[in-house]
Design a protein around this nucleic acid. Structure first.
Lengths: 218, 218
DNA sequence: CCGCCGGTCAACCAAAAGGTTTATTGTGGC
DNA sequence: GCCACAATAAACCTTTTGGTTGACCGGCGG
């Protein structure tokens, strides 16, 4: 059986070295190339394609310091920017927030693994991805199921707008002026937000909203 | 010259593999053992000590999922819990917020490197630590120097500690309980923090502190 | 030795935020 | 037309914060 050729995409040299060491230690898996960010990954894919040595699986980190992040890179790869057919993309990252997972899956990732996974789990995931299957880390799968079981109340766009102003440190009066509404209305909105997020004060609301990636981080 | 014996402490198997591969590739550096969290690190140090094979440098991650985190582990090592003399501890982590750096240094770390550092930088840092010197990543050093140049009102480490709890959404009472101080003291600290940051409420303090990377957030 | 500073605490007052109830308006679905 | 719901708003009350003043202790530097 042919070897599975993997492209590593991660901005940390240490992590790349670790994956390289780990994967080349496995039977039937080889590291075709490495890239430090999304742009380099696309370039590497194109290059290997024209060389007639296409990669079988892309192993990609999500958050990569300066360069193009993993989600957009995955989207571009899946859009065929690096030549067709697009290889399966397996996400390997540290965080498992709902927003991250959903974004990755929507971008076309065929798997989502956590960096603290044991080597064997990573190997299985690579094999599965190469075979065209999807591979979710147990923790991730559990979280997705739990979210389906009890869907969380969604915030309206107006409420999110309020949350964003909230996070900048404005008081209720200032928020009211910004949005051309009365202070009373701001308070009403806040009460609704608190209920939906399961908190009882503004700083906790910001903490939760940030963690769930409902609002941006600075 | 004798080889420098390193203990790796990181909860990610991938990262450990990467560091092992990287370090053993360097002349004069060997990996003595690995540990997945602080407790295991202490155990490993004791064991190697009694075997007469003491480690020369501990390379430690700060945030380690479940087990004992890096700061407390560093503190315990420096307190001599794993036998004396305590080896130098070199922090190798992803984040470079003031809070993390200060906590690590106060715990007795003799260096602070970032995981996205090039291998050569890591090698230098290990050599420096083994020689009893301190090693700071350029980015970290730059920020500390910039802090000294600018007579910007510096927050005390206690104040930063408060700020971190603040950002999790806790109220004054909860913060007081967490830190084993009275609510009055919390309020006093907050007033000082507000003055230094130039704000007049807690959410604004969090916003500013996050932006200035005094505390970490996403 | 003395003064300064960081950390601790208290009492007090004013302002802001949290919580509840009630109500009006507009929009979209059935 | 009716219902549900988002957005708006007010009145009322309780709790939490913010701001000030003053005080005590311990360490550290002049």
């Amino acid at each position: 059986m042919k070897e599975i050729r993997v492209l590593l995409v991660d901005d940390h040299p240490v992590v790349r070295a670790g994956l390289r060491a780990m994967l080349t230690g496995f039977e039937g898996i080889a590291v075709a190339a490495e890239a430090a960010d999304g742009a380099a990954a696309l370039a590497a894919l194109s290059r290997l394609n024209t060389l007639g040595e296409p990669v079988d699986v892309v192993l990609m980190d999500l958050q990569m310091g300066a360069g193009m992040d993993g989600v957009t890179a995955t989207g571009r790869i899946k859009a065929g920017e690096a030549g067709t057919p697009a290889p399966p993309v397996l996400i390997l990252t540290t965080f498992d927030s709902d927003a991250d997972i959903l974004a990755a899956v929507e971008a076309g990732a065929s798997g989502y693994m956590l960096k603290d996974a044991p080597p064997e789990q990573i190997r299985q995931a690579v094999l599965a991805a190469a075979a065209g299957q999807t591979a979710l880390a147990p923790e991730v799968a559990a979280r997705l199921l739990g979210r389906i079981r009890n869907p969380e109340p969604a915030l309206s766009s107006r409420e999110i707008q309020l949350l964003e102003l909230l996070a900048t440190g404005l008081g209720n009066r200032a928020i009211a002026r910004q949005l051309f509404i009365s202070e009373a209305t701001v308070k009403t909105h806040l009460v609704h937000i608190y209920r939906k997020l399961g908190v009882d004060n503004r700083t906790a609301a910001i903490a939760v909203a940030t963690q769930r990636r409902i609002i941006r981080r600075g």
